[in-house]
Amino acid sequence: MITHPFTYQAPSTIDEAVQQLDRSDEGKVIAGGHSLLPLMKLGLAQPEALIDLRRIASLREIRSEADGTIAIGALATHRDITHDQTVRAKLVALAEAAGAVGDLQVRARGTIGGSLAHADPAADEPAPALAYDAIIRAVGPKGRRDIKASEYFKGVFETALAANEIIAEIRFPAPDGRTGGAYAKFAHPASGFAITGVAAVITIKADGTVERAAIGVTGAAAAAYRATAAEKALAGTNGDAKAIAAAAAKAADGITALSDLAASSDYRKHLVTVYAKRAIERAISRAKA
């Protein structure tokens, strides 16, 4: 449980943090530390340098911009997000996913930026980031770079983020008026990680038909993904129980499902369809409310 030796810096601006990270050899950024520190204690991560973002207060803000975009600072904790009134009103699937992370202590320390940068395949927040078409805004030595969530998650602990880039904020475009969201999760009984987590964001027309469906799935495959076959099946339907069941049945189409002690790959695929159904049902009823 004793970590490999490392240097520690806590810069007060993100530009400074980027410089320190870029100059470091095997440096790692630390935010809430709820993924990195356990790995370091187990010897699975051995960074030579830790760059702590905790002094960069502006990175913890959650703000609404003029065009309706909700910009969530990378250091916003899962708990901040769960309790934020704007997030609860506009991005309810994200509020629910953040509220489903780990336990109270983890939610109070762990951050959305940390979760997305670490990219544990069983993390919760990648699912709503995909379903809401979030933009991951990273800062590197060459400046700012915006990465679409759909192009960000690459594999197990693998993302489009470069080794010398730091996530500054996650930008969520304002959903259209008649939009409802929901996150449904099957948690590992011991670890609390998502064996399956599905975020559904559904927009309906005035006549009740489904205009657009976006479904993000985490926990099931090496990287979180958009269930495009299910989205296509749901769009244009009247969103009744039959349409939901038919769409949800396609939520695991084409994936290579993870398999471990907690769930084999065919059980995981089954769970994806069950939890997709639950998330879609709740999202549609919220869109209609």
Binding site: H188, P189, A190, S191, L261
Partner: peptide
């Protein structure tokens, strides 16, 4: 419902941590 010590074919304990082996608490 939860507790099982699972070994692989080489005798390696797979359910070797509290992240895998669930001991129920009051909320369960």
């Amino acid at each position: 419902l939860y507790e099982g010590a699972v070994y692989d074919n080489d005798g390696q304990l797979l359910s070797g941590s509290m992240m895998e082996y669930h001991v129920p608490s009051a909320e369960d």
